[in-house]
Amino acid sequence: MTSRGAVLGVLTLLLMACCACGSTPGTPAPKPSVSGDWRLVFHDDFDGSRLDKDRWTTCYDWNEDGCTISSNNELEWYQPRQVSVGGGKLTITAQRRAIRGSDGEVYPWVSGMISTGRDHWYAKPRETFTYGYFEAAIRIPAQGGMAPAFWMMPASRFTPPEIDIMEFLGTTREPSMFVHWRNAEGAKRKQGEIFTAADFSDDYHVFAVLWEKDKLVWYVDGVERFRVTASERIPHVPMEVLINLAVGLPHAPPSGTVSARMLVDWVRVWQR
């Protein structure tokens, strides 16, 4: 009897420990943190040894031996080798290494990204979504001059609209959340929120957005941080999911910085 009781006690402690582990920000919950009848339609836990190419590509839709967003004056040229999977996580690495892009420009940094979009301009996107709950557990880099982002762009390949679920623009303490749209005259507009908190590079944090026909709601670690309900600002088109580590927004990294890493534990997309 004593031996059996000891075993039961150990099992109880192990169960309690597992439950505690399941409540940490970097561990996926069985359901999203918002109420409702949800169905998991897309997910990646990055448990293998390489990126799942059926789920992800490593560039924008305008991929020509790499890519960037030239209109932002970013310092990086995205390359597939800067994305790796191992140890139960995705790693995106930015490195100070000069490279000439297919656009003829020389970029002082290489970095990585993943997208559910196309391999090139005329291909079919891997996955697109219209409405849902989108979340990812991400640990941002600690280095300055980096701009990690988790966001969505239209399958039409033209923005706006655009949903920025999370952006850190040269900081590790101020996540930005934005929606971009065009008004009735066709002019670009945006609305967003930035709040200051503890250093987000210290651990994984869960960034999410609820996108429905009548609202957009942003969450950080399960806490609502921003909401948009104006009808003309809500997208109603299929969109791709992207995660990337841009460099040089809004300022270049310090001269002594030679690399930075962005870690992704998991990605989830839920729909009703």
Rank of each mutant, 00 (worst) to 15 (best):
K124V: 07
M146E: 05
A187V: 10
G186P: 02
L210Y: 04
P238Q: 15
T116D: 14
F200D: 01
L210C: 03
P250L: 01
G192W: 03
S176G: 10
V217H: 04
E212P: 05
A147I: 00
D164F: 00
K188C: 01
I138E: 10
H120E: 09
F207H: 06
A246G: 01
T229Y: 08
M239L: 12
R139N: 11
W151K: 05
P154M: 06
H120G: 07
A149R: 06
L249N: 15
I165F: 06
A208T: 04
V237T: 14
T171L: 02
E240N: 14
P125M: 05
A142N: 11
A149V: 03
Q191G: 14
P250T: 07
I138T: 08
T130E: 14
L210T: 00
E127N: 14
K190G: 04
V217R: 15
S176N: 09
R173A: 00
A123K: 06
E167T: 08
W121Y: 12
A198Y: 08
V237Q: 09
A123R: 13
L210Q: 03
F200H: 12
A230R: 14
P154K: 10
A187Q: 08
V209R: 01
E212I: 13
S201D: 02
A123F: 15
Y131M: 11
W211A: 03
K190S: 08
R225Q: 07
W211R: 02
D199M: 04
P148Q: 15
M177C: 11
R182M: 13
T130F: 13
P160F: 06
F134Y: 15
E193D: 15
P253S: 02
T128V: 12
F168E: 01
W151V: 00
A184E: 08
L210H: 03
F226E: 07
G132V: 08
F150P: 03
P254Y: 10
Y133T: 00
Q191M: 14
P154F: 03
K188I: 03
V209Y: 03
S201R: 02
F200Y: 15
A149L: 05
R225M: 11
R157C: 09
A142Y: 09
V179C: 10
